[in-house]
Amino acid sequence: MFRSIVVALALGLSCGGAAARSPLVLFTDFGTADGAVAAMKGVAYSISQDLLIADLSHEDPGGIFAGGFRLYQAEQFWPKGSVFVAVVDPGVGTGRLAIALETLSGRFFLAPNNGLLTLVAQREGVKELREIDESVNRRPGSEQSHTFHGRDIFAYAGARLASGAQSFEQIGRKLPPEALIALPYRAAERKGDLVNGVIPVLDAHFGNVWTNIPQSMFEELKVALGDDLRVRIHHGDRLVVDLVAPYQRTFGDVQPGTPLVYVDSLFDMAVALNLANFAERYGVGFGPDWTIDFSRAP
């Protein structure tokens, strides 16, 4: 009886396609008001109904730069072997390459080669880079579709990789690591008595201002909890914010509507208003041309 059950299970797996090996995580700027994301999931499930599919986000992150940070924010918490399909792709249908990246941390990323993987590659390291071979990694019958590569190429190829239907080496020809397009991204730095960085994104729901200044660099200022800091934010050469705020552990340590400097969930420095929207009140945006610095208040 036991042997019969094992044989039946083996036959069931062979008939139903490859069993899922890795989570498949979808990240797009498509939104969920229409059927685009559902179509991607349908294509993936057509490869294997055993897939574990999760959503990172499908809201507009604000461009490729911000999209790269959203991916950077979340991917590190997923297990080794996870497959990320990342589609923020204003150049869809043009000559830009569709690529697959394996990082030194053992995760996989399928995306347009437009800079979206800049931060992931910098932090995790590039183990191998490949061009997605569309002759085998394109949804059958979609050859005349030029504006929905998220469904027809990336979701299809990602599902084949996550399910074990193909290996990473089978995705396509190997590319040199320098073929990966990288966006300009200025790292945080200490300049004497202040630390300076950029505002890569905003905390979308609450309007908190996130920075790329790590807590370890900030602590070089020898600031203690409760100390006042001067916070200055520039958009290009224009000074947008110049205020004093205390360094605190969390939002409730200051009065409602009051600013504070704190360490965010990525262990970088951030600025917020308790129970209010800092970015909205002060007209702060995000991107490589938005900079911020912290120094001790006089």
Score class of each variant (00 low, 15 high):
residue 192 G to I: 04
residue 213 I to Y: 04
residue 209 V to G: 10
residue 195 V to I: 08
residue 203 D to L: 08
residue 224 A to F: 00
residue 195 V to T: 09
residue 204 A to G: 04
residue 233 I to Q: 08
residue 199 I to F: 01
residue 209 V to E: 10
residue 204 A to L: 10
residue 217 M to E: 09
residue 230 R to Y: 04
residue 205 H to R: 12
residue 230 R to P: 05
residue 236 G to F: 13
residue 190 R to I: 06
residue 199 I to S: 01
residue 213 I to W: 02
residue 190 R to C: 01
residue 209 V to D: 05
residue 237 D to Q: 14
residue 204 A to I: 07
residue 193 D to F: 01
residue 209 V to P: 04
residue 194 L to V: 13
residue 208 N to F: 09
residue 220 E to R: 09
residue 231 V to D: 11
residue 231 V to W: 10
residue 189 E to G: 06
residue 223 V to F: 02
residue 214 P to Q: 05
residue 221 L to W: 02
residue 190 R to D: 00
residue 193 D to P: 06
residue 237 D to E: 14
residue 224 A to C: 01
residue 217 M to I: 06
residue 228 D to K: 04
residue 236 G to Y: 12
residue 218 F to G: 03
residue 208 N to A: 08
residue 197 G to Y: 08
residue 221 L to A: 07
residue 216 S to G: 09
residue 200 P to S: 02
residue 229 L to F: 00
residue 238 R to L: 15
residue 212 N to K: 06
residue 202 L to W: 02
residue 222 K to I: 00
residue 239 L to V: 12
residue 210 W to Q: 13
residue 239 L to I: 15
residue 187 A to T: 05
residue 187 A to Q: 10
residue 238 R to A: 15
residue 218 F to K: 00
residue 204 A to M: 11
residue 187 A to W: 03
residue 193 D to H: 04
residue 239 L to G: 10
residue 208 N to Q: 04
residue 232 R to D: 10
residue 189 E to I: 04
residue 204 A to W: 10
residue 206 F to R: 14
residue 194 L to F: 15
residue 195 V to S: 03
residue 238 R to P: 10
residue 220 E to M: 01
residue 207 G to V: 14
residue 237 D to G: 12
residue 211 T to F: 08
residue 233 I to A: 12
residue 195 V to Q: 04
residue 234 H to P: 11
residue 196 N to C: 12
residue 225 L to N: 01
residue 199 I to L: 00
residue 210 W to G: 11
residue 219 E to H: 13
residue 217 M to L: 15
residue 239 L to K: 14
residue 215 Q to L: 07
residue 232 R to A: 03
residue 225 L to Y: 12
residue 209 V to H: 10
residue 226 G to P: 06
residue 188 A to K: 04
residue 219 E to C: 06
residue 224 A to Q: 02
residue 203 D to M: 08
residue 210 W to A: 15
residue 218 F to W: 04
residue 228 D to Q: 11
residue 216 S to M: 07
residue 233 I to F: 08
residue 234 H to F: 15
residue 237 D to K: 14
residue 188 A to Q: 02
residue 214 P to E: 05
residue 232 R to I: 08
residue 199 I to A: 03
residue 216 S to C: 06
residue 227 D to K: 00
residue 207 G to P: 12
residue 210 W to Y: 15
residue 192 G to H: 06
residue 239 L to P: 14
residue 235 H to D: 15
residue 231 V to I: 15
residue 229 L to E: 00
residue 192 G to P: 01
residue 199 I to R: 02
residue 200 P to Q: 04
residue 196 N to A: 11
residue 195 V to H: 08
residue 201 V to N: 06
residue 219 E to Y: 12
residue 217 M to Q: 08
residue 238 R to E: 15
residue 212 N to R: 00
residue 201 V to I: 14
residue 209 V to C: 11
residue 223 V to T: 10
residue 221 L to V: 09
residue 192 G to C: 07
residue 198 V to M: 03
residue 231 V to N: 15
residue 236 G to W: 15
residue 205 H to Q: 13
